[in-house]
Design a protein around this nucleic acid. Structure first.
Lengths: 335, 335
DNA sequence: ATGAAAGCGCTAACAT
DNA sequence: ATGTTAGCGCTTTCAT
């Protein structure tokens, strides 16, 4: 039943069928002015008849400047990135830009291939959420292709991000206010540009006259957090509260705490970050910092469009303010 | 600080720099035989020096048959599709195929654009999870480009799917065995090829001498389910158990049940479908049918590769068997 | 091992 | 309103 797909139907074929030049066909398909309604209709009819479909690769090649936005996402199983995607698409789809997606292969370490696949696709601009590379590499990349860094501010590079210092501060202060004195922080490996939450945690804890306790997981996923947090709950003076780098990690901590017989919030207060849908579920009710991922995506999309239009515009820097969402995963420590 | 990006560096530039023909450069980059190690090295060096990067659009155009796999995903906020993605990539990445992603715009209705964007990108094969179009349209599409339908069997089209009849039967029979007599089913709109779960539910319920109660939500999302299931819990003889089309919808039902003051499983037993990570969380513990989404993706990836290699091979049909995962969201009804 | 040359399907001046 | 023409950057016979 498979028909042989020899040579594909081209605009030339359509032109011949209608009896016009290929230019008209090209014009018609791009809605360019200067084609009579009559011929336009004839062209569309013939195209449908012949089964013509536009060849984006050829068009991209012929066109001088690319009409494509590349979106790099770190990890699809973290809902934040799905939200960023939705936001970007929302912002971009009204324009006639194509959006091509690239998802990182590695969840906690540096990833080369995903970015270069975008570059090879000759996108006009790359929106990247989240880059783990050091600033210098990001800056270098942005010299090759216009780049919008999302969820992370990079000096000299268009950046759309959330105020992580404010978010982390709100989270930790919330726990302090509840009366916790042994508050741990669970995070991923150290990467430049991703230290605000941890550093703020350490600072606030210090200022309160307490001792910070940071656990580094292998990456930023639920699984890694679960594994890393295990050590936390074996000791006698285990923490009574944990501030996790993100909701996924908070969920991992929550699972392993349960394995140790600890209930949230009775035995352990837990704060996440991202305010994902899961955090809001009854039975999870995770206190979390909302960084407005969808809005981050929208803003990044708009920024990308602006950058595409004005390559020489000064560096754009957009910071959103997060919001602590208090739920029942946090409470005063048992005494 | 933005440097002007005039004309991009081409193989021609590299060739000139090294003092060879562009053929050699092309050969070198594709690892084609017939280039001395010496010149190959010189070419790579020059490429790096000039900042050359391969142009995929141009290559695709010049190459006769495309080396790209297109993947269509219905909804990224449903973890099943993220798993399918992971599986597909896992299967495909060892080969040198590129993978391009397209995510549906509409979550519960038919979506034209996303598929055509894949066709316009001239992919060699499309893996689609999940297509909502009627069989006839899917079959027609598969005549344009080789198509692998995932999570749904379509006659005459390569299909990789799970046995939904067995899965739904296991789910409903589990509830019957617990003693439930008022079991409702919450699902999305009626689409050809997506009725196995509902039909099986109805059949099993009927055979048990009970009355089926089906609620149709606007699409297959948590939000839609929440909204649609509201009516379920107002009535006096409300169901004591709900079998949802998927985990997302089950979660939606769970939330609205809670709003009505119902606890799971005390007042309501709940069965989902997909066995996503959320289902496994402590506090959620959702009984669910595992359809092995990751494996579905892997299998689809392999199938796509096979189809690419042998366009005229007979239609491939691969069915996986699901598994009911019983957790504490289901219990005997209160009496 | 290396090179010359044709052409992939399309866009975009530039003509008419 | 319509047609002519010259590429875009690459792959790929076919020569040498």
């Amino acid at each position: 039943m498979k028909t042989t797909r020899a040579r594909s139907i081209t605009q030339e074929d359509v032109a011949r069928e209608v009896g016009v030049s290929r230019t008209l066909v090209s014009f018609a398909f791009r809605g360019a002015p200067g084609v009579s309604d009559e011929t336009k209709q004839a062209i569309f009819d013939a195209a449908k008849l012949l089964g013509y479909s536009h060849n984006a690769a050829a068009a991209d090649l012929a066109r001088k400047q690319p009409a494509t936005v590349g979106l790099f996402l770190l990890d699809l199983s973290n809902e934040v990135y799905v939200d960023v995607f939705s936001g970007v698409r929302e912002a971009i789809s009204p324009m006639k830009k194509r959006l091509i997606l690239s998802v990182s292969h590695s969840r906690g370490s540096i990833d080369e291939g995903s970015l270069s696949s975008l570059i090879e696709a000759r996108v006009g601009v790359i929106i990247a959420a989240t880059l783990l590379e050091p600033d210098s590499q990001v800056q270098e990349l942005s010299r090759t292709v216009p780049l919008i860094s999302v969820t992370r501010r990079v000096e000299g590079v268009d950046s759309v991000y959330s105020n992580n210092v404010a978010g982390a501060r709100a989270a930790v202060e919330h726990l302090l206010r509840l009366g916790h004195t042994r508050i741990a922080h669970v995070t991923g490996p150290i990467h430049q540009g991703h230290e605000d939450r941890r550093l703020t945690y350490e600072e606030v804890i210090h200022k309160a006259g307490l001792v910070p306790q940071v656990v580094y997981a292998q990456d930023y996923t639920q699984e890694a957090a679960r594994q890393a947090a295990d050590q936390l709950f074996g000791a006698l003076d285990r923490p009574t509260a944990v501030f996790a780098h993100n909701d996924e990690m908070a969920l991992g901590v929550r699972e392993i705490a349960f394995v140790h017989g600890l209930e949230v919030p009775r035995d352990l207060s837990l704060v996440g970050y991202d305010d994902s849908r899961i955090a809001k579920l009854h039975g999870i009710d995770l206190t979390s910092v909302d960084l407005h991922a969808l809005e981050l995506g929208r803003t990044a999309g708009i920024t990308a469009l602006e950058r595409l239009a004005k390559p020489d515009f000064p560096v754009i820097d957009r910071k959103l303010e997060p919001r602590l969402m208090v739920r029942s995963s946090t409470a005063a420590p048992a005494r």
